[in-house]
């Protein structure tokens, strides 16, 4: 046998074994995949419809939207004027800037404080540790509705309404983040800590140079949660800001809707919605696997 024959045979044998494995299953199985594909396709489309509609409408010229007797999803002519309008007519650049600052501050603070407290709860023995930990976990069941009125009064009295400080200060720490970090830190063998100690490493050095790099997965998962939760906040930024220049993207979108709806300018509204949605969609598409795994593991979505 020549080498050419052998490779040909090899090439053939690979799909052949796959074929055989599938034959082990009942033969109607393969035919049976089609209905599953069809139902999932339909379900997926139904769920994605609100986003698909918004996406295409954001590129549809206004006369086309209001002029048609039966609505169509796809635009006849594509335009960017809706984005231009949303970007100018309402200060969307400012809203987005506000949201990025608000979300950035909250996310960074939550991640840092959670790493610090999580480290202490995982590695140190100290007075009152058990009690403090119960108090911490207890706060997870306190709904936001209970705290937001006193927080509003406090933050307003401090003169922090309509400031970045006011937008962010109640959310700088996360009990869930501390819990998640503690869980992960405790899964790292303690021997590593003892060895580093013997080598003369300080706790601070050990935390940032050894623990944190080892926990990249857990830290980035929590960062995603924190980012999404902060970006999507609604009730707090709604009550704590009333100046247009301090609105976050979500709140800006709400007022943009109220203004543009009178003008039935749905293309511009959908362009605004797309702008506000894009950061979270990017996070979803880039980190889908991690996000889904994080939700499945913790039962939380930030």
């Amino acid at each position: 046998m020549t080498t050419a024959d052998m490779t040909a045979a090899d090439a053939q044998s690979t799909p052949l074994t796959v074929e055989l494995e599938h034959d082990a299953e009942p033969t109607k199985r393969r035919f049976g995949e089609l209905p599953i594909h069809l139902s999932l396709l339909i379900i997926g489309l139904i769920i994605a419809v609100p986003i698909i509609v918004a996406f295409f409408m954001s590129f549809t010229p206004l006369p086309e939207i209001v002029g048609r007797s039966d609505p169509k999803i796809l635009p006849d002519t594509w335009t960017l004027e809706n984005y231009d309008k949303a970007w100018r007519a309402s200060p969307f650049p400012r809203y987005m800037l506000n949201s990025f600052i608000q979300t950035g501050v909250i996310t960074i603070a939550q991640v840092l404080l959670s790493i610090l407290a999580g480290f202490a709860f995982a590695m140190f023995e100290f007075r009152g540790k058990a009690i403090l930990f119960s108090i911490l976990i207890g706060s997870l069941i306190i709904p936001f509705e209970l705290t937001f009125i006193p927080n509003f009064l406090l933050v307003s009295d401090l003169g922090l309404a309509n400031t970045y400080a006011g937008l962010t200060i109640p959310f700088l720490a996360s009990a869930f983040g501390v819990f998640m970090m503690r869980q992960f830190f405790m899964s790292i063998p303690r021997d590593l800590y003892d060895a580093a100690k013997i080598d003369g490493a300080s706790d601070w050095f050990y935390l940032w140079r050894i623990m944190v790099p080892l926990s990249k997965g857990a830290i980035s998962a929590f960062t995603i949660f924190a980012f999404l939760a902060a970006w999507n906040q609604y009730l707090w930024p709604l009550v704590i800001t009333n100046e247009e220049s301090m609105r976050t993207a979500q709140i800006g979108l709400r007022f943009f809707l109220v203004n543009q709806e009178r003008a039935t300018d749905w293309g511009a509204i959908m362009a605004g919605a797309m702008i506000v949605m894009i950061p979270t969609l990017i996070v979803f598409l880039v980190a889908q696997r991690q996000l889904v795994k994080g939700i499945a593991m913790t039962g939380l979505k930030g």
């Binding site: 999932l40 396709l41 379900i43 997926g44 489309l45 769920i47 994605a48 419809v49 609100p50 986003i51 509609v53 918004a54 409408m57 939207i65 209001v66 609505p71 999803i73 999404l228 970006w231 999507n232 906040q233 609604y234 979500q250 709140i251 979108l253 709400r254 809707l257 709806e261 039935t264 749905w266 509204i269 959908m270 605004g272 919605a273 506000v276 949605m277 979270t280 969609l281 996070v283 979803f284 598409l285 889908q288 996000l291 889904v292 939700i295 979505k301």
Partner: peptide, 30 residues
């Protein structure tokens, strides 16, 4: 399929409200 089905996870209540307000609209809604 998973991407399409999971996507609402990252959508805010405000966005959901705006998207459905369009869909429910009696004139231009779908």
């Amino acid at each position: 399929y998973r991407t399409a089905i999971f996507i609402p996870v990252v959508i805010s209540s405000a966005i959901a409200g705006v998207l459905f307000r369009l869909l429910y609209n009696p004139v231009v809604g779908f």
